Simulated scan of single mutants.
Amino acid sequence: MKLTQDRIQKYENDGMLFIPNYLSKLEINSVNEAIFQLPDNTPGLVMEKDCQTIRALHGVHAHSKILQDLIRHPLLLEPARQILGDSVYLYQFKINMKAAFTGDLWPWHQDYAFWYEEDGMPEPRTISIGIFLDEVNQFNGPLYYILGSHKEGLIDFNTNGSREDAGWEANVSADLKYCLDNKTITRLVQKGSLTAPTGSAGSVFFFHGNIAHASVPNISPYPRRLLIITYNSINNIPRSDRKRPEFLVGKNYTPLEPIVKNNVLLQQI
């Protein structure tokens, strides 16, 4: 259930690691069924600008045992603890929907900018794991990453002034509050390189909180749903004076332990 040293080295060099077909089709089917059964209008639901298309769901694991079990899946949790060298807790759980034809872009940004500015997270001692719930191809808005950009640390960002007084939605909309400008992106790409992982449902990528990433709108007929679990070190808990809602920022700091083989989800490997 742990990563090889070569894979760990690649993650450390690039700031991300992509593994095709990491979870089984049966597991992904179980996760998709759990998502289908989620209640309507959960608190962390975000709509696209058209007010008709779901953009993202946050914190919905609270409504599903299958999704709670997924967080403790040894194939996800063990590498997270291995890379961070520490026990971890759930910091964030979200599903970015990227609907066919209407899924909007995600501007260039670093995730840690939001966690530092909004939550008071001391250091980027996190790891996020993205799980393809659909096939991701060149047409349906794959995530773009700039390899090695995590080594820059927290980069100076542009603050979207029009979002200063907005609520938490300003951190998850197409008009992101903290973005990287074109000059910065050009410099980072010249120094590193661009990649856009594609593959079948069940493929997984691990990525650092400081890697620069973005995605374009999905104008194809293919949906691109991406489930992202972010783990944080138990020794990196944000300052308690920050007030983003719990469905966006986990406040249960109990160290996670892997689920055992007799669990329903794991029986489907």
Rank of each mutant, 00 (worst) to 15 (best):
L76S: 06
R72T: 11
G103K: 07
I83R: 03
I95G: 03
A80Q: 02
R81Q: 15
Y89V: 03
K98L: 04
V88I: 12
T102P: 02
L84P: 05
I95C: 11
K98H: 11
V88S: 09
K98Y: 08
L75D: 12
Q92H: 13
K94M: 12
I83H: 08
F101V: 13
L75C: 13
D86F: 06
Y91D: 09
L75T: 13
V88M: 10
T102H: 14
L70E: 00
D69A: 00
F101N: 12
L90T: 02
D69N: 13
Q92S: 11
L76W: 05
A99W: 07
A99P: 04
F93R: 07
L90D: 03
Y91N: 15
S87W: 09
Y89S: 06
R81E: 07
Y89K: 09
D86N: 15
Y89N: 10
N96E: 04
L77N: 10
Q82A: 02
L70Q: 01
R72W: 09
G103V: 08
L90M: 08
R72C: 15
L90E: 01
Y91G: 11
Y91F: 15
R81C: 08
N96R: 12
D86G: 11
I71E: 02
R72N: 07
L76R: 02
D69Q: 06
K98R: 11
L75Q: 15
H73R: 15
N96Q: 11
V88K: 07
E78K: 15
L76T: 06
I71H: 01
G103A: 08
D69C: 02
V88N: 09
K94R: 13
I95E: 06
Y89C: 07
D104Q: 12
A80P: 04
M97V: 14
D86C: 15
V88Q: 05
